[in-house]
Design a protein around this nucleic acid. Sequence first.
DNA 1: ATTCATAATGAATAAATATTCATAGAAATG
DNA 2: CATTTCTATGAATATTTATTCATTATGAAT
Lengths: 147, 147
Amino acid sequence: MNKTLRQRAVLDVLKHGSIASQEDLQRLLRKRGFKVGQATLSRDIRDLNLSKTAHGYALPQGESGAGIALPPVSRLVREFVLDIRSAQNQLVIKTIVGSAQPVAAALDEADWSEVVGTIAGDDTILIVCPDKDDARKLAGRIEEMLS
Amino acid sequence: MNKTLRQRAVLDVLKHGSIASQEDLQRLLRKRGFKVGQATLSRDIRDLNLSKTAHGYALPQGESGAGIALPPVSRLVREFVLDIRSAQNQLVIKTIVGSAQPVAAALDEADWSEVVGTIAGDDTILIVCPDKDDARKLAGRIEEMLS
DNA sequence: ATTCATAATGAATAAATATTCATAGAAATG
DNA sequence: CATTTCTATGAATATTTATTCATTATGAAT
C-alpha cells in the first residue's frame, strides 16, 4: 500500500511511453513492482489530473513539469530513506527495501545542481555529485528532511 | 448529416460550459439542432483532438485557439452561404436554412477586424462592420470564397 | 443516369473507466 | 489497549466510450 511512490511511478511511466489504457498502465506498473487494481489507477489518474487524449494519457497542461498535487520529495525522503553517507563526490543512500528506484527517480526529477546522476538498486541509491563539497551539501540537505 | 457544422458546434459548446460526458454533449447539441448518436460524437472528439480530464472534455493544449484539423471558414462559406449583400456598414448573408447560426459563429471566431458583431436567425446573418469600406471589403472577401 | 468508390452515420456491442460497497490497516483519541 | 476515524484499496458493478458491422448518403467518372 503505497500511494505516494506509485503515483510518482505513474508520472514516470507517462514520460517514457504513451499509455493507451489503464490496463496498459497496470501492466507497466507491475513491472516496476506495483501490483494494483484498475480502480486504484482510475483514482490515481484523477488525483494526478491526467487527461486522456486520442494518443493516451497525458500530463495536465498548465502546470509546470508534472502533477499538481504531488507530495514533495521531502515527504518521500522522510518516509523511505534510512541512512545517508557521503564519500568523495558520491552519496550513498539506504532506503527501505524496494523503494530505492522510485526515490532515486524523485531525486533525479528534483533537478538539483548537486545531482549529476543516480543509480538505484533495491534498497540502495548511489548519487554522483560534481565534487566533494556538493556531496556534503546535498547530504546535509537530505538529512534535514529526515527530522 | 453535417459534420463540419456539428464539429464547430462541439467546440463552441466546449467554450461555454464543461462537458462531462458524450451524453451531455449529445443533449446540448440537440438543443442546437444537431441530432446525432453517441458513436458519432466519439468520432468527433477524436477528430478534434479533444482530451478528457477530470473536469470534462477540453481543447487540445499546444494548438492556438481551437482544434487542429478544423475545416477553414472558407469551406463553410462555400458550402452554406447563398448570397451576400452589403448596406452601409452592414452585411446581410443568406444561407441554406438552419445554417445561419453556426456559420455566424464561425465568422465571429475568425476574428477579423471588419467584423464588429453578428446576429443570426435561421437562414440570415447580419454582420455589423466598423464602416462602409470595411463592409465592402468583407463582402468581397467572402464572395471570393464562393467561387 | 448508372456505376463505383468513399465518407458519414447509427445500432449493437465490446472495451474501458468510474463508482459503489465492503474491508483492512493506519493514525488519532480516550 | 480499546475504540473511533480516516484512508487506501479491490471486487463487483454501473457507466461511459470506442469499435464493428451494416446501411445510407455523396460525389466522381463514365
